[in-house]
C-alpha cells in the first residue's frame, strides 16, 4: 500500500511528531516500502492461530498493593525542563 502525503501528515499528527514539508516525500516513500514489505504476511494462512503476545506465554504477575518505592519527587523533578512548587509546567492549555 502506497502512502500519500496527506496520510503521512495524519500519521505524524497521531504520533505527535513535527515533520517538515520537505521531508514528507521521503517519509512517504520509505513508509510505503516498509508496508509493501510487511504485506508479505498476507501469504500466510493464520486461520485459528492465537496471536503470540509473550514469547513464553507468561501472564502478568501481580503484587500486593503496597507502597514500595521511596518518594524521590525532588530528584526526579531536577531533570524536568520547567517546574514550580513541585508541579511540572507546560504551555497554557485552557484560556
Amino acid at each position: 500500500m502506497a502512502l500519500e502525503a496527506p496520510q503521512v501528515e495524519k500519521i505524524a499528527h497521531l504520533a505527535m511528531l513535527d515533520i517538515t514539508a520537505a521531508d514528507i516525500p521521503e517519509y512517504a516513500r520509505n513508509l510505503s516500502d516498509i508496508l509493501a514489505f510487511v504485506e508479505h504476511l498476507e501469504e500466510v494462512d493464520t486461520t485459528s492461530v492465537v496471536p503470540l503476545a509473550h514469547p513464553l506465554d507468561a501472564v502478568q504477575r501481580l503484587r500486593a498493593d503496597e507502597v514500595t518505592e521511596a518518594d524521590e519527587r525532588e530528584a526526579f523533578q531536577a531533570h524536568a525542563p520547567l517546574t514550580e512548587a513541585g508541579l511540572y509546567l507546560v504551555p497554557k492549555v485552557i484560556e
Binding site: L17, D23, L31, I34, L35, V90, P91
Partner: peptide, 27 residues
C-alpha cells in the same frame, strides 16, 4: 501551546529512523 510543544520537542529530539519507526507503529 501544548500540542506544538509536544510535536516540536519530539520532532527535534528524535532522528529520522526513530521517527520512521514511530510512524510505522502508529499506522
Amino acid at each position: 501551546d501544548l500540542e506544538e510543544m509536544y510535536k516540536r520537542s519530539r520532532g527535534e529530539g528524535f532522528g529520522a529512523e526513530v521517527k520512521r519507526r514511530i510512524m510505522i507503529g502508529t499506522y
